[in-house]
Design a protein around this nucleic acid. Structure first.
Lengths: 157, 157
DNA sequence: GATGTTTGCTTGACCAATCAAGCACCGGAT
DNA sequence: ATCCGGTGCTTGATTGGTCAAGCAAACATC
């Protein structure tokens, strides 16, 4: 505690305190809950679902590893391991990248696409039930903007 | 994704879709960002900080494992391992519970209390900068209520 | 008051993520 | 052409969590 003014910031207001606690809970509970729903229902963990989903939204159902990792909010090595897991299930195939032989494309197979179709409703239901339902009546667009800013260390100006 | 038959719930509205994506990002990025801030700053990961904080808010700075685990949103075994980590750093001590010899209390040591005092401002600053700042002007109480419900599988009545 | 069940916590095995190091390839400078 | 720093991805080691099994104390029942 070198600098007295830095060491004694304003404490949080009770409202802020409550919000922070609630968010802490959500961040812990929500992904596990949705994941558990999907695993229980469809044997497809959230991370793998997300990878399949992002692949499916691409025109030719293929994507470079680094791009996919970014969309899945995963490190590159985490992405590699997820794709390997999916590959052993036959849901994804890997192909060397044409224009750069260092690169790989993850390619959604027909089996992968089918799997996604099959588990999509389960995911949707979980998201609604665990999350969206509780935000009915709020200004979603405004909230979205706030969330998009959060996590960044945006300057306080 | 058009699956014609029974398995077609209403898809999300664009607003909902955007919110879900934004939340996905926040849930991934925010804890790591805060954790990184604190580790970089103070060598105290968020989980350990949370444990110390909850202990410090108790009248005699001690708590049963199961209660502490619930407050930290951790499984019992996860809590055990966190406390062991803290114990080896001398920040927490364990004492058998008086009124039930199966139980243990985690007790915040003076060193632990000092450590907490020391890292509190850093945590507070990270929370403000990474999170609260982006929610200025919103109805925090309303948001808090929504968050508190989220993660639970509350009946859809 | 012995016995069987339940409770509180720890331990073992495992898993999915991370970071750091490694390998293969690209592409510009010489 | 060849070397050499940079890039794309994988692999190895570690971490921090989970669940399931284990163990000891408590309690209820006979």
């Amino acid at each position: 505690m070198a600098n007295p003014s830095a060491a004694t910031p304003q404490p949080l207001t009770p409202d802020e305190e409550a919000l922070v606690r609630a968010l802490g809970q959500v961040m812990h509970v929500l992904p596990r809950a949705i994941d558990a729903d999907m695993v229980g229902d469809r044997q497809l963990p959230l991370t793998e679902y997300t990878a399949l989903m992002n692949l499916s939204e691409t025109p030719d159902r293929r994507m470079r590893m680094n791009e996919l990792a970014a969309l899945c909010h995963l490190s590159l090595s985490g992405m590699t391991r997820t794709i390997i897991r999916l590959e052993t299930q036959g849901l994804v195939r890997r192909e060397r990248c044409e224009e750069d032989a260092r690169g790989w494309n993850a390619v959604l197979t027909d089996a992968g696409y089918a799997r996604l179709q099959e588990s999509w409703p389960s995911h949707l239901a979980a998201v609604r039930r665990r999350f969206l339902q509780h935000f009915e009546g709020l200004d979603l667009a405004q909230l979205t903007r706030a969330f998009q800013g959060a996590g960044t260390a945006e300057p306080t100006d």
